[in-house]
Design a protein around this nucleic acid. Sequence first.
DNA 1: TACGACTATTCGTGTCAAGGAATATTTTGA
DNA 2: TCAAAATATTCCTTGACACGAATAGTCGTA
Lengths: 123, 123
Amino acid sequence: MLEVFRALAEPSRLQIVDLLCGEPLPVGSVAERLGIRQPQASKHLRALTDAGLLEVRHDAQRRIYALRGQPFRDLDMWLSRYRTLFEEQFEKLDSLLEELKLEERKKSQSPKKRLPAKPRLRS
Amino acid sequence: MLEVFRALAEPSRLQIVDLLCGEPLPVGSVAERLGIRQPQASKHLRALTDAGLLEVRHDAQRRIYALRGQPFRDLDMWLSRYRTLFEEQFEKLDSLLEELKLEERKKSQSPKKRLPAKPRLRS
DNA sequence: TACGACTATTCGTGTCAAGGAATATTTTGA
DNA sequence: TCAAAATATTCCTTGACACGAATAGTCGTA
């Protein structure tokens, strides 16, 4: 997962992934469409392949790169851990924060009272 | 999107996100649970905030960091572009890989001979 | 076999960012 | 206002990596 993020954390490589989403392409086409030189294209394709994002097919002298499904499924699964979060996050957060405040007040024996919550979550 | 990937492409920061998925936390707790020093925690939290992944709440001297939903929704949308891809690719992929295997075996047995069939991914 | 087309790798260089240590800043309470 | 707690920032060094240029490897064909 870290490897996937690392691989995608580069402009050219992100572009390549977007590009290969449409169709598999040989190195030369990738280089041409991105406006980069062939060696750089090869390097980035290599990095993406090492990260498990691409697979290669040999066609004569050509190497045709295509997206692999697995890492995207992995990413989807990773995301799903947060998917539920955005829906009920707000109430949970608020109640938690209030609990924290209450505890501190108790601990410090403070006479100050600020019970009403300030849900300043998204600006 | 690039910024999000860049922010997540670092072990500590990925851990922080995983950590804050459970509950919002102040800097000190983050540092402690990750086994890193406070300045580093502050820096990483700053990076994540700059990337739009976190939001801060002030509680006395404490800064309590919490996940924001938006970037994850963005990521989900970005992923959706590929979602259709890895559903129909299965059969194609399997047949392609088998064909490749056959080809290689043939090559190692009787070199200089090509299979007439060229597997195309998306024609 | 030699050549041309296509791709991969190596090497040197410069840039950016992470870690560590020290210090500045903010906020609360006495 | 001063001290302490919590956090942020700065400076420095170092390692990772992206780029360019040159070179090496691979494959089909004449």
